[in-house]
Design a protein around this nucleic acid. Structure first.
Length: 485
RNA sequence: GGCGGCUUGGCCAAGUGGUAAGGCGACGGCCUGCAAAGCCGUUAUUCUCCGGUUCAAAUCCGGAAGCCGCCUCCA
């Protein structure tokens, strides 16, 4: 079971070996809660959700920490603009985060701490760093002394000397080195503040993650994740703080997900193309969003476009279509229990999926395995005869069971197929002026015409329905209809 | 200026030195009264280009071109 992960620290795929056998301690940077979550947040949160699900499913005991940074310049600015307190802002956006991520079927982490709950731990670390002479107080602020940490730059591959040349940084003459960063900031009037040995103040940006991970996972742990943008300076500074304070390796494996582009453009507020999760969910099924996010390798950029979403939506239909077909044929879905440690109960499809996922969480390849399985089941069911009925049921159940296990990792196919299609149809009807009763009546008329072999009338009615953006399918047990995309 | 990444069929996209997954689209077929859905088949002798290593390269090395990201708040 050789799981390999790409480690930003080494720039290579490495064999995954945990500090404690069978246990994974994992910390992922959550949002700074000053604004609504966009599709980029969704990518990071959904990806690490899948890492969490996968590691748990293959038998690890996973402690997963995902934090909220709820004290920060951006939150304070926002609060001042709106004339409310910082807590009002952070509470509002924490609630929004949960609403979005719950909708996306993201599992809650083991612990979801907030920076403001760990002020004491932050002060402790800062004090240790000052004692070790690796940080210095200055007019109520405390700065980390970058030059005192030998490994500074090892994550992002930067050298202090190289950076100084062209870097755009505000020159603060009080700092010993322009790259020294604030561990503690003295409070300005009206800002949230806490008592500290250096006076009233609040934490700097990076220190909260060092404090929370230390407190909840220990001085050294297995996985630290986040978006690529956090590599520098955030994660570089975390390493500096934590390793300087504790004198040992902070994190074994650093995982960073790539960005989401919008129609091939970088998503940014200046371009005005920041795409919020809640806006996407108003149009797309949450599982469509997950399927879309899984369709590329997590470290590559992914392009959010109408076409890519349409494809993912079609693929989701295909998956639910199979589940419905199985359910229509056999009455119920295979009962699946995701109880790991017993690989013998997993079929070939799961094994293929596992090989894909253990290679640096290759979800795109895992998706290919899933679709191959779907096609295989459809093929089997196309070919059912009386003689093969018993045998094929066993085959279908076996493969379908793997499909559902895979879906559990991907966090999709959580609905009853009938309800999925029903809801999809009623959602589509909201933007359509046609009422269902008219459709049903027309379908009845067409069914009657077909019974009478009056195919001209039958085809005319279908044409009329198509003009109303309604498509129909004649099935063994009757005619069903859908709203066209 | 420094650092990093990417370039695979009409489009999206995997690819672990051994002879190109998967999805969408298109075309042909099976099924169907006709459709739809599903299935089958065809769609890359070739992986931006030029060299090199090797029995063997999309995969390794060197170079060129194009695109992109980070270095400033950012998932």
């Amino acid at each position: 079971m050789p799981l390999k992960v790409y480690n930003t620290l080494s720039g290579k795929k490495e064999l995954f070996e945990t500090i404690e056998p069978g246990e994974v301690r994992m910390y992922v940077c959550g949002p700074t809660v000053y604004d609504s979550c966009h599709i980029g947040h969704a990518r990071s949160v959904v990806f690490f959700d899948i890492v969490y699900r996968f590691l748990s499913a293959v038998g690890y005991d996973v402690t997963y920490i995902r934090n909220f940074t709820d004290v920060d310049d951006k939150i304070i600015n926002r609060a001042n603009q709106l004339g409310v307190s910082s807590e009002d802002i952070s509470e509002k956006y924490i609630n929004e985060f949960y609403r979005d991520m719950d909708a996306l079927n993201v599992k809650r982490a083991t612990i979801e701490p907030r920076a403001t709950q760990h002020i004491g731990d932050i002060i402790n670390i800062v004090s240790v760093l000052i004692e070790k002479n690796m940080a210095y107080p200055m007019d109520g602020d405390v700065y980390f002394r970058v030059a005192s940490f030998e490994g500074y730059g090892k994550l992002s591959g930067r050298k202090l000397e190289d950076m100084e040349a062209g870097a755009r940084i505000d020159i603060d003459e009080r700092k010993e080195n322009p790259f020294d960063f604030a561990l503690w900031k003295t409070a300005k009037p009206g800002e949230p503040s806490w008592d500290s040995p250096w006076g009233k103040g609040r934490p700097g940006w990076h220190i909260e993650c060092s404090a929370m991970s230390w407190q909840l996972l220990g001085e050294s742990f297995d996985i630290h994740g986040g978006g690529k943008d956090l590599i520098f300076p955030h994660h570089e500074n975390e390493i500096a703080q934590s390793e300087a304070a504790f004198g040992r390796q902070f994190v074994r494996y650093w995982l960073h997900n790539g960005f989401v582009n919008i129609n091939s453009e970088k998503m940014s507020k200046s371009l005005g193309n920041t795409t919020l999760i809640k806006d996407i969910l108003a149009v797309h099924h949450p599982e469509t969003v997950r399927l879309f996010l899984l369709s590329n390798h997590y470290r590559s950029p992914i392009d959010f476009t109408d076409q890519s979403m349409k494809e993912s939506a079609g693929n989701l239909d295909k998956l639910y279509g199979l589940l419905q077909r199985i359910s229509d044929t056999y009455g119920n879905l295979p009962m699946v229990r995701l109880n790991s440690n017993n690989m013998s109960r997993y079929g070939e499809v799961w094994k293929e999926f596992f090989f894909s996922m253990e290679d640096d969480f290759n979800t795109a390849r895992g998706l290919a395995v899933l679709f191959e399985a779907v096609r295989k089941v459809n093929r089997i069911m196309d070919d059912i005869t009386d003689e093969t009925a018993f045998e094929t049921k066993y085959q279908v159940e076996s493969i379908a069971s793997d499909i559902v296990k895979i879906a559990n990792i991907f966090g999709i196919l959580t609905e009853i197929p009938y309800e999925y299609f029903d809801r999809k149809r009623s959602d589509a009807l909201k933007s359509n002026t046609v009422d269902p009763e008219t459709i049903e009546t027309m379908i009845d008329q067409r069914t009657q015409a077909r019974k009478n072999k009056d195919f001209a009338t039958a085809d005319r009615i279908r044409k009329e329905l198509e003009d109303m953006k309604i498509t129909i399918e004649d099935r063994a047990d009757g005619t069903i209809w859908k709203v066209m995309d």
